[in-house]
């Protein structure tokens, strides 16, 4: 009963992960299919990748998406870190309830509503729709995710560390940059990464808030998907999945390494004493 796996456990893990990964695996495999027909395997080929690189519309959309994702994730990280700090360190102030409501609400708000409401506001203030509006929209919902990630990291670390800095003569502003920020850095990086991929993935909000000339990659994929499955889209998807998976895996393996080293050193210290 201890930690051994029963056959049932092993079977449910295998089937579960098969379910999670098979569709993506098939998508990747068929991006290398010679034939245009999705169901017929006609031999290995990279021609769809070549074709994709010829598709100017797709490349433009990809470029726009990267620009939006990079800009919005940087802004969202700054704003979200501030918001996380406010929620876990600033105690009570007027309008705190409204503030935390506005942080949590976008996380559960259906995307269609967020998109619609932002669009209506951009129209109301007569802001031309395009790169700027999509970026503003992405900053707004991404910063809430960053805030939650940063807040949970702040909640997890000993507050007296910051008090100790102040006790030793460091004013609050400097304490944030010299003590707090280095400690929560992993959460801030994770928040940035999360914002970046959220922006990279977003279809619904971008569809509402974008304008001519700023079509994002998910929108492009969506409009082609509605016309049917094509190996070219499979190729684009494979590249996107590959990029994100590599980024996330690298980031988490690095953190994991550091954690393991740290734990080993801690055990060593206790053993030596």
């Amino acid at each position: 009963m201890r930690q051994g796996l029963t056959w049932f456990n092993i079977a449910s893990l295998l089937l579960g992960f098969l379910f999670l990964y098979l569709p993506i695996a098939l998508l990747i495999i068929y991006s290398f299919n010679e034939s245009r027909l999705v169901t017929v395997w006609a031999g290995f080929s990279t021609k769809w990748y070549a074709e994709m690189l010829q598709n100017q519309g797709l490349l433009n959309a990809g470029w726009v998406t990267l620009k939006v994702a990079f800009t919005s994730s940087c802004f969202a990280t700054v704003l979200g870190t501030m918001a996380g700090l406010i929620m876990s360190r600033f105690g009570s102030f007027h309008g705190r309830t409204l503030f935390s409501g506005m942080i949590y609400a976008p996380l559960v708000m259906p995307e269609v509503i967020t998109g619609l409401s932002l669009l209506l506001m951009f129209v109301a203030v007569a802001l031309d729709r395009g790169f700027v509006t999509v970026t503003l929209a992405h900053i707004t919902f991404s910063m809430c995710y960053v805030a939650v990630v940063v807040q949970s990291r702040l909640a997890g670390f000993d507050r007296s560390i910051e008090e100790a800095a102040m006790d030793l003569g460091c004013p609050p502003g400097r304490t944030f940059f010299q003590i707090t920020l280095p400690i929560i850095a992993p959460a801030v990086v994770a928040g940035w990464l999360l914002s970046f991929t959220l922006s990279l993935d977003d279809l619904v909000i971008a569809s509402f808030t974008t304008g001519p000339g700023a079509t994002t990659l998910p929108m492009k994929i969506y409009s082609q998907v509605r016309l049917g499955v094509t190996p070219e889209i499979n190729a684009v998807c494979t590249i996107l999945v590959g990029l994100v998976a590599t980024g996330v895996l690298t980031a988490s393996l690095i953190t994991r390494r550091q954690e393991m080293r740290r734990e080993a050193e801690e055990r060593q210290a206790i053993a030596n004493s």
Binding site: D158, S160, I161, E163, A164, A165, D167, L168, I179, P182, I183
Partner: peptide, 13 residues
């Protein structure tokens, strides 16, 4: 005045 904290509050970095 300086304080020594119960958790020691050493700067981990």
């Amino acid at each position: 005045v300086n304080m020594m904290f119960q958790s020691y509050a050493l700067f981990p970095h």
